[in-house]
Nucleic acid binder design. Structure first.
Lengths: 201, 201
DNA sequence: CCTCTTCCGCATCGGTCGCTACAGAAGTGC
DNA sequence: GCACTTCTGTAGCGACCGATGCGGAAGAGG
């Protein structure tokens, strides 16, 4: 009957799980899934391999959780953009958010969802598929947003929401690749502005 | 004085260097630089590690040569596109060539220059930089082509060639990412057609 | 034939990979 | 104090990483 109000028994964890996951996410972001070794990861997390396995399972599970954290952290602009009042503002916010996130100083350049595991060996195919699904999910949610805009009469009825969302996500992924190579923020923003000057396509 | 007309002395090589390099390129294309192990590479090439080292130097040199082969093979559409008579046809040819190459059945999906080493560990940074320079070179050559079109009066004098080339290459890299995730050829081509419908931007 | 040069198959190098067994430390509840 | 549960540091697992040493095989030139 007594509600369990006391903490879990046993020795409490000696590190902050959220902070360790944040650091792991940064390593995956910069070096990719295959490029990030456990030694590098645990070194950045400040814990031993034993603690990492006890807290996160294994490397692949750690990556999955790092991707979730990325989605709700650096990539949260996507969810916010979908709430913009118009489709045009949604597209603008997505590209601006992508550019800001992929070119932020003191953060890894590029996008974890793009460069985390774009091409991998056999042992990392599950992670590659996970990221492909992650990217596709973003495209689908954007398509639904544009479809709503068509239904509400904001966009012309002959507009193809899938085509439009594919266009915006293609630009976003391309921006991520450019940013990973060191292309500057201002140049990308000018290009994005020009790309959305005529809308919808 | 006598011109050396006889072949090199010693035991001749027992395999075709070009074909072995072609197979190595395909492995790098599909699995990336870090994901492609020497065992996988030499297995696909049909030679032993000893022969690979004797013929190509090491893994990094093998990748450099595979990238050259990729540039002159699957990515040769870029050079051809730059010779198109108009800037618009150049842009159209680049996107069409990108889509065809990144979605070709029986070939790895995506683009070696994008997914070969987009994010890597420390030991592969040189390859990452090499690919970033490769991508930037494509953008620069395209910019020069557009600049010529401005000089020749084909494009309005207020056109920014750098902006335009950044736009086209961003679309191309985004297409490569989409293709790596399994997006179909027709859908990408429809999007590319729509993206270039208003030109120049 | 012999000699010379190069190539190739086998074995293996030290290092690192992801991962785990074990024992002791450090907390909780009684 | 005690028993119990959980976490952590060390040490090491087998497997694979990229890269080599070595000796014999194989062809070219004489």
């Amino acid at each position: 009957m007594a509600t369990k109000q006391s903490g879990p028994i046993g020795r409490p964890r000696g590190f902050d799980t959220d902070e360790a996951l944040e650091r792991a996410m940064l390593v995956f972001w910069e070096q990719g899934y295959e490029g990030a070794s456990l030694a590098t990861l645990t070194g950045a997390m400040g814990i031993s391999t034993t603690s990492m396995y006890a807290a996160f399972g294994n490397k692949e599970e750690l990556f999955r959780k790092a991707l979730e954290r990325y989605t709700e952290g650096p990539s949260a602009y996507l969810a916010r953009a979908l709430d913009e009042p118009t489709a045009h503002r949604t597209a603008t916010a997505i590209l601006a958010g992508t550019i800001r996130t992929t070119t932020r100083p003191a953060h890894p350049r590029g996008c974890l969802g793009v460069q985390g595991a774009l091409a991998t060996g056999d042992s990392a195919q599950a992670v590659r598929d996970l990221l492909a699904a992650w990217r596709n999910d973003g495209c689908v949610r954007l398509r639904d947003r544009f479809r709503r805009a068509v239904d509400e009469g904001e966009l012309p009825p002959e507009t193809d929401p899938g085509l439009l969302s594919r266009y915006v996500t293609t630009l976003a992924f391309g921006i991520a690749v450019q940013a990973a190579g060191g292309v500057g923020r201002d140049e990308l923003q000018e290009m994005a502005d020009a790309a959305l000057r005529n809308w919808p396509l």
